[in-house]
Design a protein around this nucleic acid. Structure first.
Lengths: 129, 129
DNA sequence: AATTTAAATGTTATAATATAACACTATGTA
DNA sequence: TACATAGTGTTATATTATAACATTTAAATT
């Protein structure tokens, strides 16, 4: 198991505590009191945390969330639901979906090693508003 | 059917001719001889073209490609394969996949109006290198 | 324990991506 | 014609991300 470095720990903890995806500069602002001063310090930790699967990047939002799925060691098969009204993001953990996508092959015969899926819609709360 | 404005036409044409996804500032550079001088002119056209489904944004690459699928009127169900070596991007048009994803419902009962899926791997050419 | 190697850090500068705000022009429609 | 809507042009600026280099820490190897 991977041990997080000091900066990685600080940045993971703040993302993990956040109820919503966090953007890099918002993370930076929040960790300045802990001595992390420069964007690069944040981006380096983010890169590593993504690489080891502790966090995921929500590509359509340029934001990061902690992995909700304890079995997710690496970020090679990710799926999220995103509410377009309140911007709540949830990681989808559905074995039928992941099985279907992991085995998917397109006409060109390309074999995929990774995928990222983002669903958009309205969450329950926002639907009834 | 939608008629493209002057700037939309110019910007669509250059993306449509490109064999690979184009980035906004690369588009800007390429259309400056046609009188389009500012980033905002490019981004406005891109926004509209995405909205009407003539182009798609590859979120993981911040780049744009023309829709390969003549039936794709709006960008509400998109899937792409991306080669991590040569960066070639192909739009996937697979009715089994789109049916599966369009009907997908997660545990939270959220109904999705849109999705975007990006597969990553090595294309045939890059596999045999 | 000393050596060596890889990983992480700190820092300054800058590149790349994207939007705000405002004035104006063209186009479609009542 | 007049009214509304969409598109344009422009300047300035916000946001997201990386390059380059010097140094320090941690881990693996001898």
């Amino acid at each position: 198991m991977h041990t997080l470095s000091k900066n990685q720990r600080i940045i993971f903890d703040i993302i993990d505590k956040s109820p919503e995806p966090m953007k890099a500069y918002s993370i930076l602002f929040n960790v300045q009191k802990k001595g992390i001063k420069a964007p690069l310090q944040v981006y380096r930790a983010l890169d590593k945390l993504v690489e080891i699967g502790k966090i995921h990047k929500i590509e359509s939002r340029n934001a990061f969330i902690a992995c909700q799925n304890s079995s997710c060691q690496v970020s090679k098969a990710t799926a999220f639901s995103i509410c377009e009204s309140c911007e709540k993001v949830t990681e989808i953990n559905n074995s039928s979906l992941s099985k279907y996508l992991s085995n998917f092959k397109d006409k060109a015969g390309m074999k995929y090693s990774k995928y990222n899926l983002e669903f958009f819609g309205l969450c329950k709360k926002c639907t009834t508003k």
